[in-house]
Design a protein around this nucleic acid. Structure first.
Length: 723
DNA sequence: TTAGGGTTAGCC
DNA sequence: GGCTAACCCTAA
């Protein structure tokens, strides 16, 4: 059978079932959001978040769904300024980032994109104003607010309110955050109609009384979703006419040199069917009415062809993406659990704490859009296959079996301290360090760099590739791609007030062993601001380029702010690399250090055995056996400075330095290599060989890295004998 | 696009 | 100031 078939069979039951569960919970989450049951929404997203760290069949629209979940999660928490998904961004700022990724991947009309973005920004400003966060409101206003003429009035109003420090105004009272949420949901639903999940379909067909024939959601689009879902999960759905089948068959048979005519095949199959009617086929095909007695076997035939087709695609891409690699199993997505400081948010924290140990998520890498069309066809057919196979007991996922979807975002939960005063955060987690290997960026020595890295991580997470709505899976999951957390949405809890800090502590202690993640920290220097922008854009561009980036690893962090509090927040970021093998990295928590360095403890667990003597301590993975302990360790901790601090604090600096000219008209900021990145590089070299830097770069969710950077890093690694 | 040498940034 | 990883520049 085709290679794809073998891939299909290689899917584990867990992958398949997790996929079904994933689809189901996404569907439920959307329903909950639509019903304004945001608590349920949060619960569902938590489930999803945990689910995607397990091996999941990265099929088709998984990334799209993850993006939607990420977006809505941020929207849902947008009025909570003390939460962050990506430090130092507020949830709504993160929503804008996700929006940009969505728009890039799904071709959203520019006007619509702008409208939604503007709505988010306006809402964010209003939220800031209501909360008395005038500095932040001003920052958002200056940075993001549209300069369009039609927005001039609002801009002036906001400026006025900020200037006068007014947190109450009729305009602020008028807008309802709930309405805003629903507006954002409408946007998502217009953009992507979530098909009815396979599990629900099955439940309906089983005659379960509690399930109506209608989709759970009340949306008017549900019907469409249902049919779409059917396609996805295998029911042929009669949407295929005999004519179209014939056409497809014609094309495929020509392509693959199948000599049997469609008519012959049809007759054969009819005969077969007469002899044994497979219930499964009925199941698959009976749902939709057919004008013509569409041959039940049609699905089978097509699926077979499709598989071949798909397999070709896969094989062709395989080399590049190595979908089949063990890693690729799942794509994590980070969805959504923001971290917060306040006690009331404990539940959110919980999700992160409870995090499973192994998160292996394989971030599927995404495939490139060019494949989409082909993919769509294949997906379509695949769905048919699925049904048949399901019945047969074999794996139901025909789709891109080999393709793991890269979920991009692994969930990262962080607590960040946002103190306006830039309190330093101390990561206590180090002591507690789990055995799990965190992959902390080996190279990073300097604490200040971490923040930058963190950002980069975020961007990576964004890398989820969404191919197209068609559900064709665009994910090219390169096996090797771990999901970078970032995209994974990292949720953090940022402690803004010192008072709140104590609360934060709660979750951190419980921290699971696993994941180490090392969020890179960025430097504090004035460069940072520049960097932020550049990173941001870089990350996004990366998304575009590697849309499929599965999101990578989910990263959960806990960070402590200050040593004094030692409430010990440990920042833990989980990065799931592959489905199967997930590498968890713990990054040092974001250190926040005031200018005076505070002792930070960073826990970095590195999966690598490499000795990073020379590597920077920051993310230096702690080797358990490594000599570095005691004094060295302390020094490392001391290096962690909180760069993440309040972004607003940097703004001035940023403006000061933005025009700074460095060597090439701008100063570059050093971005230390994370363990994760180094792993990707090593994997890339293993796969493609040294010298194919561009190929490697495009095959992994690197963000802010050029081929030259890769080359340089490889050179450094060789020099350090890290490889 | 890559290779290799030079430069810069940041820590000690 | 030394050291070094990351970054830049440029020729091929």
């Amino acid at each position: 059978m085709s290679a794809s078939a073998s891939k299909v069979s290689s899917l584990s039951d867990e992958q398949i079932i997790n996929r079904w569960g994933f689809d189901y919970y996404v569907f439920k989450a959307l329903s909950a959001f639509r019903d304004a049951d945001y608590t349920a929404f949060t619960h569902f997203t938590s489930i999803i978040e945990n689910l995607v760290v397990r091996p999941v069949d990265g099929h088709s629209d998984m990334i799209v769904k993850l993006r939607c979940m990420q977006f809505l999660s941020r929207i849902n928490n947008g009025d909570k300024l003390d939460l962050t998904f990506e430090e130092p961004k507020t949830p709504l700022e993160s929503a804008v980032s996700v929006l940009e990724s969505i728009c890039r991947d799904m071709s959203v009309p520019p006007r619509e994109q702008e409208r939604v973005k503007q709505a988010i920004i306006e809402t964010l400003i209003m939220v800031c104003l209501r909360s008395g966060e005038f500095t932040r409101a001003e920052e958002v206003l200056l940075r993001h607010f549209s300069d369009a003429e039609d927005s001039a009035g609002k801009k002036k109003l906001f400026e006025s309110l900020i200037r006068r420090r007014r947190s109450s105004h009729s305009v602020l009272q008028l807008s309802s955050y709930a309405d805003f949420k629903q507006d954002m949901l409408d946007f998502i639903e217009r953009l992507y109609r979530v098909p009815e999940p396979f599990l629900l379909q099955m439940l309906k067909r089983s005659g379960h009384p509690g399930v109506s024939s209608e989709p759970v959601t009340s949306s008017s689009q549900d019907r469409q979703k249902t049919s779409a879902a059917a396609e996805h999960h295998g029911s042929v759905c009669a949407c295929l006419s005999l004519h179209s089948l014939r056409q497809v068959y014609g094309v495929l048979s020509e392509r693959y040199g199948v000599s049997v005519s469609f008519t012959q095949l049809q007759q054969e199959l009819e005969e077969e069917q007469e002899q044994e009617e497979s219930p499964e086929l009925h199941l698959a095909l009976s749902e939709t009415p057919r004008e013509q007695p569409e041959p039940p076997y049609a699905g089978m035939t097509i699926s077979r062809l499709v598989q071949e087709d798909d397999s070709q695609l896969s094989t062709a891409e395989e080399e590049e993406t190595q979908i089949s690699s063990p890693h690729s199993e799942c794509s994590p997505a980070q969805i959504c659990t923001p971290a917060r400081h306040t006690q009331k948010h404990n539940r959110i924290i919980l999700s992160s704490d409870v995090e499973p140990e192994d998160h292996a998520t394989s971030p599927p890498s995404s495939r490139r859009s060019s494949r989409h069309k082909q993919q769509q066809k294949s997906d379509h057919s695949e769905s048919k296959c699925v049904m048949v196979e399901d019945d047969g007991g074999s794996s139901a996922q025909v789709c891109s079996p080999a393709r793991p979807s890269s979920s991009s975002s692994s969930p990262a939960v962080r607590r960040s301290a946002r103190d306006t005063q830039r309190q330093s955060r101390i990561v206590l987690s180090s002591d507690v360090e789990p055995e799990d290997h965190a992959t902390s960026p080996p190279s990073s020595r300097r604490s200040s760099r971490h923040k930058q890295q963190q950002k980069s991580v975020h961007s990576e997470s964004k890398c989820v590739m969404v191919e197209d709505d068609g559900g064709s899976s665009a994910q090219v999951c390169s096996p090797a791609r771990p999901s970078s957390s970032s995209s994974s949405p990292a949720v953090r809890r940022s402690a803004r007030d010192t008072q709140r800090q104590s609360r934060i502590v709660l979750s951190s202690d419980v921290e699971p062993e696993d994941h180490a993640t090392s969020p890179p920290s960025s430097r504090r220097s004035s460069r940072h601001k520049q960097q932020q922008k550049s990173d941001h854009s870089a990350g996004e561009s990366a998304l575009v380029s590697s849309p499929a980036h599965p999101s990578s690893p989910a990263s959960v962090r806990r960070s402590d702010r200050d040593t004094q509090n030692q409430s010990s927040e440990s920042e833990c970021v989980m990065e799931v690399e592959d489905g199967g093998s997930c590498v968890q990295h713990s990054t040092p928590a974001r250190p926040s250090a005031t200018d005076t360095q505070r002792h930070n403890r960073s826990v970095t667990v590195s999966s690598e055995s490499e000795d990073h003597k020379s590597s920077p301590a920051t993310q230096t993975p702690r080797r358990r056996s490594s000599p570095s302990s005691g004094g060295a360790h302390k020094r490392r901790r001391a290096r962690w400075q909180d760069v993440s601090g309040t972004h607003e604090n940097w703004s001035d600096e940023e403006s000061l330095f933005s025009a700074t000219s460095g060597r090439s008209s701008k100063k570059y900021s050093r971005k230390m290599w994370t363990v994760q990145e180094s792993e990707w590089l090593k994997e890339g070299v293993r796969r493609f060989g040294a010298g194919h830097w561009e190929k490697i770069r495009s095959s992994f969710p690197f963000t802010g890295r050029t081929a030259v950077n890769l080359k340089d890093r490889w050179r450094t690694m060789l020099k350090l004998r890290l490889v």
